[in-house]
Design a binder for these strands. Structure first.
Lengths: 339, 339
DNA sequence: CGTCGTCGGTGAAACGGTTCATAGCATGAA
DNA sequence: TTCATGCTATGAACCGTTTCACCGACGACG
């Protein structure tokens, strides 16, 4: 029917000409239909349909200044933790008829900077970001320029930035208490480098709990630093644990993928779980409960995390707030045995 | 230090005034620095820095008409399959200095339509979409209006739309051949409803392979329809399989989550894998090889899928092409036993 | 019969950039 | 000295909307 040649998009003035009205009237039909008489409205709508008119968002935005879009930058879109958070953001934004531009920085500060710039140029309402660096100065600058900024999965060290995070110390402490309750007095902790804030916090939480329970962390805790926070890291870490002179009776892992590697290694070494070695993960990813040995893990309220972040971003009063969620220990057979 | 009151953003004319040049010159500093003398350039850059000037993307885009952004709509951002595809898209787009707006339709046609409209209004270069409906007419309309459209994970039924998909029949057939090679002559297939194209295709592929190998599909294949394509579906499906009078010796699952549920159920029923029941999954998600019984699965080139889709979207000649990738069977212990 | 308020519609300014024709100004050649 | 040349910089037009001051017509009212 219509030609497929990608001719110039119809503009509002094309519509006006065809409907024999002024551009102002077309704009009114689009934005305040009640201000226009039914007859004219019909004519304009017909013209819009006829010309397959789609309003130009850039022009609208340029003139109106406002935009109902928010940006989010996570470290890695292919990590289930972050996508669950993104999902929470999306769901909250949708309630307000906002849309989300999602991007991943790949932990690279320059990629993060690039997306921040893109978002700012396009006048988003605000950005939610899992920072790729310790240094947050650029985000404070952004904030000072009037853009809303919400830190994701990271408590804000300054009171000018909002943040939504989970209490990593509490999560690790809960896991530690659970293990000590079960009688474990020597615990291995497969952890990443402390330059990653989450790793440092979880280590601190573990210490706290042990001290609180009257154990000496130096004796009770063996922290092993792994370089990759995945199953391979879990494997090499567990091999080190098994080689220890005084073998721990429980292993706590910095995340569930690491725990996966640990379980695999223990199985290969014929160490029964949990009787020979109890294992705790972190994140409670979807498959944690589906493993041959269902994994005890620390669940984080990922969806809520995103939901609350979007909430703060949309807040009409633009309040600055630091929100901290509490994680929850989910106990399964990798610590308690078949129950 | 600076006031936090969100004062008006500096515009190009503010910069021009401060640097005592014309707006045209500022624009040149931004876009063709070589056209400007070093001295002036310095002065302008200083002013830009001083005023924390960030160009307004909408204005630029409005005038320039073009934009280096693409949109992608997947069914669910929290599904690892789709996020891996998104990752492939992002990586290819980055090479061309393009950015990605990612959104999920949640399998709802109206959400898909909403995002399509948003993307079109903002003048994206094109959209890559995993359609939420069988009907693709709205996408053809979009295409006729000059927007580039690439179908994701779905072969195009019309030659006006580009598409990038994986051969599901071949994947299922490869799995079937592997099982028959191992001596299995009665196979259960836990599959979703055939209204989902992937499910229908995989079923067909299974049939094809059995016929080709001289087996009668009616006898050799028991297809069980599950309603949720996850671990729960796998569990209920497997319970049905175990209740069959003539129990199959292998179970093929429509995806890895389903396979996870199957493995769990078999273990609970003390059926050894693979000697009592071989299991095959689909997708080869990251943890498939990390399970207590590593899972044989059909790997899809997710990253390539996205990469190629972005490639088509960026093609300077705007060619229309239907690309089909071949999946690959990854054999692990859930079919071959400890090797 | 004038005045007034309402309704429906108009047209131009403004948003913040890019682009392009043009002009000023050295410089070097004739 | 004159003139062509090349380099910079200028300023106005333009992109497609929204918004707002304004205007004509019309019915109600005193």
């Amino acid at each position: 029917m219509t030609t497929t040649a990608p001719r110039r998009r119809a503009s509002i003035s094309d519509v006006a000409r065809q409907a024999k009205v002024s551009v102002g009237t077309v704009s009114n039909v689009l934005n305040r239909p009640d201000r226009v008489s039914p007859a004219t409205r019909e004519r304009v709508l017909a013209a819009i349909d006829d010309l397959a008119f789609v309003p130009n968002g850039s022009a609208r935005q340029l003139r109106a200044g406002t935009i109902t879009t928010a940006g989010a930058i996570v470290l890695d879109v292919s990590n289930p933790f972050f996508t669950d958070v993104a999902r929470g953001i999306e769901d909250r934004l949708e309630e307000a008829d906002y849309t989300l531009m999602l991007a991943s920085s790949d932990e690279k500060p320059e990629r993060e900077a690039r997306y921040l710039r893109l978002f700012e140029e396009h006048g988003v309402q605000g950005v939610m970001v899992v920072p790729a660096t310790q240094d947050l100065e650029h985000l404070e600058t952004l904030r000072a320029r009037g853009l809303r900024v919400v830190l994701l999965d990271r408590p804000s060290p300054v009171d000018t930035l909002s943040s939504v995070a989970v209490d990593d110390r509490a999560g690790a402490a809960a896991a530690a208490r659970h293990l000590v309750d079960l009688g474990h007095e020597r615990i291995a902790f497969l952890n990443g480098p402390h330059t990653i804030r989450q790793c440092a916090d979880r280590s601190a939480g573990l210490h706290d709990a042990l001290v609180e329970l009257g154990l000496d962390p130096v004796e009770a805790l063996v922290e092993i630093t792994i370089s990759t926070l995945n199953a391979d890291g879990g494997q090499t870490g567990t091999e080190q644990v098994l080689a220890l002179a005084e073998r721990p009776t429980a292993t706590m892992c910095v995340n569930d993928l690491t725990a996966l590697g640990a379980l695999r290694t223990l199985r290969a070494a014929d160490v029964p779980v949990p009787s020979g070695m109890a294992v705790v993960g972190y994140d409670d990813v979807t498959f944690a409960g589906e493993l041959a040995t269902p994994l005890t893990s620390v669940r984080q309220p990922t969806h809520q995390l995103g939901h609350r972040a979007a909430d703060l971003l949309l807040d009409p009063d633009d309040v600055v707030e630091q929100v901290t969620f509490q994680p929850e220990l989910v106990v399964r057979e990798s610590t308690t045995g078949v129950g």
